[in-house]
Each structure stands twice: as C-alpha cells, then as structure tokens.
Design a protein around this nucleic acid. Structure first.
Lengths: 336, 336
DNA sequence: CTGAAAGCGCTTACAG
DNA sequence: CTGAAAGCGCTTACAG
C-alpha cells in the first residue's frame, strides 16, 4: 500500500491562524457570523495550507454521506442512451455538492438487498433510479423506508399513483407528434416496430403512435404494430420485412428505439424501398446510420437537474413530464 | 428533507449482546481472536438488529474512504466500449469491498484540479484512469503525490517508462493477427482506416497492421493507411471511398474502431464490392451491422479485475498487456 | 464574535 | 479472550 503524505487538518489551520478549531469550522460553514478580520486571517491560513475539510469527518458529524447511489443496469445496446445520461447525472449531482456512487445489483426483488446494504451502511443519502420496470419494487421499498430518491422513468403502477418522485420523457407525446408530421407529409400507412413484452416506456411510445393514428382517422389495417423478436436489430429487420410484405405495406415505420430503427432501416435499404423510418433516443446510432436517422432526443441535462432537485424536496408526490425533441435527418425528411 | 429512522449502531449491538463495543468491533474485524461463545452471541445480536457498520465512521477511524474515483470522459460514440467497461469496473471494485465514485473533470491539465480536490478531501483512496492520452498529465501527477492508481491504457511517454501501473489490450498484436488471417484467406491488398492524429491506442493498432503487412512482404502501395476525417463514421466512409477509387483498391480494410468500420462498411455496401472489413471493440455496433462485423473483443472483465489488483500493490512499475480476441462475423469470414 | 465541550460511530493499540 | 481509553477530523449547540 502506497504511503500518502499526511493531509492537512482543521487543527493545523486553527493553529496557524491563531484561533480555535471551532472558529475555522465557522469560517467554512457560517462565515456570516465571524468577524471580517478573523475571517480573512483564517482564510489566508486555509489558502497557504491548501486545506480542504475531510469528507468523511464531515459526513460523520453531519450524518450525511454526501453521496447519491445509482445502479448501473446491465443491458447491452441500452448503454447508447444511458451513458450520456450518466454523464449528465454526474454533473448535476456534482453541481449540488455531492458525488455519485455507482453500484451494480441483481435485477428485480433480489437487487433490493444491495439497496438495503447501502442504506444500512449509510453509504449514500439518496438514490437515483433508472431502468425502471412496471411496478418496479424499488420505488415502494424506498418510499416505505423513507429513503430519498428520484426516478428517471415511471413505474406505471397497476393502481394508484407513482410511488415517489419521478421525471420522464413524454414518449407518447413525441410519437404522436411524429405520426402527425408523417401524416402531414402525406403518409397514411404508418407502422410501429416495438419490443416484445414492452416495458413502460415502450408501451407509452406505442400508445402515442396508436392514439394519433386513430385521431387522424387512419385505418387500423394500415397502422399495425409488430414486435421485433428478441428486441434486437436483426429482429427489427425481420419485423420490417413482414410489414413490407403485407398487402398494404407501410410508407413509414416508427421504431421504439434507435437500435430497432437501424434494424428496420437495413431492411428498407435492402429492398430499396422509400419507406420513412424514425427512431428514439438520438443515440450515436442515429448519426451513424447512412443518411442519418430521424429520431427523438431526450433532454438529458434537464432530466438530470430535475432529478437532483426532486431528491432534495420533501414532497414525494411530484412527477415531471418533459417533452422529447424531434431531430430530423435523412431517414424521414419531416417538415417543421 | 425526508426523515429517516435512526440507524442501528455498534453500541446497540453491544448492549443487546451484553458485551463491550470493542468486542463487537472485534467480532467484525478480528473474529479469530474472540471466544466462540461470545462470537455467536454477538452475531445473533447483529442478526436480530440487522446491524451493519457505518461506512463513514469506519472510514474516519481507518483513514480509508473505501471509495475509488473514476472520471467519466465525455466522448460521444466512445461510450460504446466504455459503458461495458464501467460496468465491469464497478463489479470488480465491489468484489474488493469498495465502491466506485464517478466524477467529471475538464480535459487535460485543468482536470487535475478535480483530482486534487478529491485527494485533499480524502474522498477516494485511489483512482482508476481510462481514456488516457499520450503523455497524460494525470499519471505523473498522481505518482508524484503517491496517490494509488491504475491506468487502463498506456500513456506512451516520449521517454522513460510508463508512470505507474497500467493494463492495456495489445492492439498491435490483435491487428497483426487480423492481417495474418486476412493474408491466409488470400488477401494481398489490406488497407487501414484510422483516426486523424491518432492517440496512443490508435497508433498502436496501426503499427500492428503495418508491421504484419511488412513482415508478410506485402507491397507498401497495396497497404495504405488513411485517416477518417473528423474520426466520424461519415469520414470513414469517405476514406473507404478514396481507397476503393485507387488504382489498386484494397480487398480488405482494417478499421481502428467499430464505429469507423461501420462507416467503411456502408461505403462497401453502397458500391456492392466484396471488400472485407474489420473493426475493433466488439461493441453493440458490431452485431448491429447487417451481416455482423468481424472485430476484436477486449477482455473487459479481465481488464477490470487486473486494474483493481494493481491499485492495491505497492509496486508502481507493473504493466499488464492483455490479448484481444478476434470475433468473426459476416464482414470478414476469417478462418481459425 | 469566539472558544470549551460533547458527540458523530467506528477502530486501534494496550492493559488486564 | 475482553474492556477502558484514546483518537479519527469534523460539526453542533451553548456558554461566555
């Protein structure tokens, strides 16, 4: 184990400045109630020594870890959106004077054990939740124990309200808007390729698509939804093939994610048809694809800062729905 | 601020078990030197109370934060590989009884400030470094201050040895192997598409490609390297176009990353030629691309556990070079 | 405005 | 094998 030089402590600052340790602490935590002269004297000492209070000592005294926990989900491909989100989340937490502690946990109820340990050890003050699932067990568990948290994504409970504060992007709204613009561009047969057994967000997006198709009076036969087997790109290509083989092939296909959209697009390219395709997330894939993928950007920074704000509020019943932003590229040349 | 129920402390365990607090501490930290009867008595108390020691209190006493710092780089697309790496890293750190604290920092020398703060506040015991650049300032800075760290990636110093322990994947070796297999499959004109102003890893990969081409006696004119403008997919497609427009177009193209490979591949598809293409990283993109992308998998878990091991060792002069694994898919049907 | 006292919840030698 | 003492480096009321 490497030897580290002794760190500077409050005691040394006090002795250098010729004041008590308590006064140094006041300079740090309540400068308004210390004499201006003392203040500058102490601050000079802090400066020369390069003093910074020990996080752990402070934590022990204040009973706040200064850390927020965030569980990394293991979902390949999925990282496409979550990595930028994590970055934004980290910055937002830092802006609040805390740091983010990341951890891994088993999926579902088993994973609660990890949350319980973190709470029991007082390793974190709160949690940020993402990758929420329907009736996610974490939310009520944390609420019951009065552990502060904020969720990115709703849990779509069978009954009752969302258990705890949440932020989400209005997937239904964004997909409805896509349909509306597609229709304005002359499309009448608009299909949807989603996940098999769609989770909350997937269902929400599909709901928005279907709702707008109906509102516009498009025929049900012309607006069909198909799941992409395995939720994979290849699966999406298969689904697209099936749609295009139909008697009334769609002229536009909404995909529930960029990854699925790329699968759909590859099938469209293969056939050389002019079907318009849209994705969701504005991940690297969207700019990666030949011609570019029209997609929905999630306001990452805004999501992150809103989440951090919700953590610190007493009210556990707040939910914030943010709008997604349609980003137009080559795969669907949507107008204003 | 939400009210949290009072956590269980060592004191309560001691009183329930009818022993001193010190003995409870011994049960936790040196069970071998406590009487078996006392042991089970105390353990029973721990069990009933669901006691877990406070991380901060323990940290203060042991002078170890129990946290390892890791800086999230902001590089779009790049997340393709780094997200799985972060997950593996988190698990490896957890296996060692610590947690990962993630943070953001300005690039280059300015970012050192953030490292300095974390050290001054004793918020972390060590750092894991990634996204290393040539002559990365962080490594010597940490070494000088005797802050333990381990680096994923070399810093390729102008002179002297690597400053501090590192783990890296042998990019040169993997690319040489690709060339060798390509040649065995009959290819004689093997080009390379890399980054403009390649960083250490990019140069390393290119070096491996060139070395093997020369070793096999392939003509220099047939083995040309071209940078992808902007390091983008579109840039890679341009570079591929230029290569294919040459008088002696390559029959195989190595790309320095999956992202570049996808760009190359799109151009190859567009022209309908049968040029073989390989990537690097085995990211989601590799399975995303039509037909699949032949690429090099980095042994993520092994990298992570090796890094954690290096953190805890006193010797600062160790380096570990791991082999990449060639994953064959449709874009280059390489044999055994 | 400033300092002496107590305490946050542990661990680390050190007596017994 | 077990416990009393001291200490980790802060903050929080509370006197003065």
């Amino acid at each position: 184990m490497t030897v580290r030089e002794q760190a500077v402590t409050l005691r040394q600052v006090a002795s250098l400045a010729g004041v008590s340790r308590q006064t140094v602490s006041n300079v740090l935590n309540a400068p308004e109630r210390v004499d201006p002269d003392t203040l500058s004297k102490v601050r000079a000492a802090i400066e020369t020594l390069g003093y910074q209070p020990s996080r752990t000592a402070r934590s022990l005294a204040t009973r706040k870890a200064g850390l927020v926990g965030y569980c990394l989900a293991r979902q390949p491909g999925h990282s496409l959106f979550m990595d930028p989100f994590l970055h934004a989340m980290t910055e937002a937490i830092e802006a609040s004077g805390r740091h983010l502690l990341v951890f891994t946990a088993a999926p579902g109820v088993d994973g609660l054990r990890t949350y319980a340990d973190l709470v029991a050890q007082r390793a974190v003050d709160a949690f940020i939740l993402s990758d929420t699932v329907d009736d996610d067990p974490r939310h009520p568990w944390l609420t019951d124990r009065r552990v502060p948290f904020a969720s990115f994504g709703r849990t779509w409970p069978e009954q009752g309200d969302e258990p705890g504060p949440w932020v989400d992007v209005d997937g239904a709204g964004a997909c409805a808007e896509l349909v509306s613009k597609l229709a304005a561009a002359g499309h009448e047969r608009i299909a949807f390729v989603g996940w098999p057994d769609p989770v909350g967000a997937g269902r929400d997006r599909e709901r928005g698509w279907r709702g707008e198709c109906q509102r516009l009076g498009l025929s049900n036969e012309d607006c069909v939804a198909l799941p992409a087997p395995a939720g994979s790109m290849a699966g999406a290509a298969l689904a697209a093939g099936e749609l295009l083989d139909g008697r009334r092939p769609p002229t536009a296909i909404l995909a529930a994610s960029d990854l699925l959209a790329v699968g759909v697009l590859s099938e469209v390219h293969r056939r050389g048809v002019d079907t318009w395709v849209t994705g969701f997330d504005d991940s690297v894939l969207a700019s990666t694809v030949e011609g570019g993928l029209t997609t929905v950007r999630q306001p990452t920074d805004q999501i992150a800062t809103t989440l951090v704000g919700l953590i610190d509020e007493a009210r556990a019943d707040r939910g914030v729905l943010l709008a997604g932003e349609i980003v137009v590229r080559g795969s669907a040349r949507l107008g204003g």
